[in-house]
Design a protein around this nucleic acid. Structure first.
Lengths: 148, 148
DNA sequence: CGGTATCCCTGAAGATACTG
DNA sequence: CAGTATCTTCAGGGATACCG
């Protein structure tokens, strides 16, 4: 994506994810998609990105299966970009980024947008757990490598 | 970081996070740090990155408070890079990326590394919940914007 | 080993004009 | 409105040489 080698063949799932959505604009587009944006113009206005760049990014995201291009609901001939099921699986990534930002990148008195449950207004959190539900930290984990 | 405007002033925590760790190399360095790497040479070998680039990235990560440079444990005069507490708070981000990659970017028969609890060997998972512990999806949430 | 200093090159991003 | 087509710029990144 930049001047770097692809990580398609890497055995590490995180690396592959970075290869697919690891560039700045793509993540911001996905963020906006979670935020309900669907139209080319909406993304452009929100991001202040050049149209050709946006066009290329959207096309890439569609080709990777993160977004899909579907007829707009308003019945017109226009199309809209929507998150696929795969795209929606990026939700935890977005929440994790948000949580980190909230915790470390705002001054105490500084306000920021909040992610809450629609029905109840309760703040949304995210944590790492074992399969049997115990919450754990990085220190408690280890990576099992694939034998080369 | 690339040819783009800074998001320091953005009200969205996700955007700010991307501003701090949103480039490819930084995330891979952080991944390796979680994996236990601490030395310049270890990162270089693992990533195959040019030394000047690695040097600059490490310096940036230190200046942002993600990594810290501490005397090596072996008593020598060497230093080592370690995750700060703030850096360790990126753990959920890494796990989220990993989980997405595992789910969507590997063939069914393809093997990948695994993140497990050290003590028990149990796989590690991550999910989004409300404050009172109910697991929820993106559809159930909404973003409360900060009034401009 | 653990970097710093240069040089160069590529390609990502912006601006702008144009099209259906 | 929703893009495509060009052109240009500029900084990120690789290679290499050098240093304590």
């Amino acid at each position: 994506m930049v001047g770097r080698k692809s990580l398609k063949g890497d055995y590490c799932p995180s690396a592959r994810s970075l290869d697919v959505i690891g560039d700045w604009w793509s993540l911001l587009i996905v963020r906006d998609a979670f935020d309900g944006l669907t139209r080319f113009g909406e993304f452009q206005k929100s991001l202040g990105i050049a149209k050709n760049i946006l066009s290329e990014r959207l096309r890439t995201l569609v080709s990777r299966g993160i977004l899909e291009l579907v007829p707009a609901e308003d019945g017109g001939s226009r199309m809209q970009y929507r998150l696929t099921e795969m795209g929606r699986d990026l939700f935890p990534v977005m929440v994790a980024l948000r949580q980190f930002g909230e915790r470390h990148l705002f001054e105490p008195d500084e306000r920021h947008s909040q992610l809450v449950e629609r029905e109840t207004g309760l703040p949304v959190r995210l944590d790492v757990r074992t399969q049997d539900g115990r919450s754990i930290g990085a220190e408690d984990t280890v990576i099992l490598k694939v034998p080369e």
